[in-house]
Design a protein around this nucleic acid. Structure first.
Length: 241
DNA sequence: AAAGCGGGGCT
DNA sequence: AGCCCAGCTTT
């Protein structure tokens, strides 16, 4: 077997349980964020780039200001770079203003003014990696693409017991999982939900296991709460396909 | 595989 | 003082 791609195979029960819990979590506790009120791929992309290694609370006002001043990709393409950077620089990672401006100009010149519609075309844009491209595919276009950010990495790593070494192999496994767990329906709600679940419940520090719907089935919650007596292990394995 | 980007928030 | 934050690009 040549050119083998890893695929994650997850036992059906933990997978379904995980999906159900995430979707319910989003219905009941999901955050109301400005970039969740639109399906405009341009607006989604702007939000995602501003959110790189930056907290939601910091991004919110900047996103509002950015969209007010540059409501369309054409508006951004026609703007002076300095006016863009004036808005985005305070967030840090100051290259992002240049990225957004360059993206807009490239969309105008190379894509006829329309946002790219495929994962590959999106990833070809400066500052757009696999996460951001997947976010646009699922949040703007409703496509079944995986998203792996710091939240999803932590949640999947814990629940599906991916060893927390900093290796490329771990990243590989996490990406395979991130794509495998996305349900066929309710892609948007699920991907938003995993991130909310990670941000609000399965947090990096002081995870809220006591109010976690999955605590009885989570290997990482050992000692934090009673485990289910049987069938609790979320077996995950990988093989060449 | 590792470094660099970066300011803000929270412990 | 240290860790974390809806990552990506460059050595």
């Amino acid at each position: 077997m040549r050119h083998i791609k890893y695929r994650a195979q997850i036992a059906p029960t933990p997978l379904r349980r995980f999906r159900r819990a995430v979707l319910k979590f989003y219905r009941t506790e999901g955050r109301d964020l400005p970039w969740r009120r639109t399906r405009d791929p341009y607006a989604i992309l702007v939000s995602e780039i501003l959110l790189h290694q930056t907290t939601v609370a910091s991004v919110e006002p900047v996103y509002e200001a950015f969209m007010a001043q540059f409501p369309t990709v054409e508006a951004l393409a026609s703007a002076e770079l300095d006016t863009v950077k004036a808005i985005t620089d305070p967030l840090g990672y100051k290259i992002r203003g240049m990225w957004l401006w360059t993206i807009a100009r490239r969309v105008r010149t190379a894509h006829g003014g329309r946002m790219p519609r495929t994962l590959a075309a999106l990833m070809d844009l400066p500052g757009v990696g696999r996460y951001t491209a997947g976010a646009v595919m699922s949040f703007a276009y409703g496509r079944r693409a995986g998203v792996l950010d710091t939240n999803v990495s932590r949640v999947l790593g814990r629940f599906f017991q991916v060893p927390a070494d900093g290796t490329a192999e771990r990243q590989h496994q996490l990406w395979a999982l991130a794509e495998a767990v996305v349900p066929v329906r309710q892609v948007w709600q699920f991907n938003q939900g995993v991130m909310d679940f990670g941000a609000l419940c399965c947090r990096a520090r002081q995870p809220q296991c006591s109010r976690c719907p999955l605590v009885r089935h989570c290997p990482a919650a050992e000692g934090r709460a009673p485990r289910a007596a049987e069938g609790a292990s979320s077996s995950v394995w990988f093989w060449d396909a």
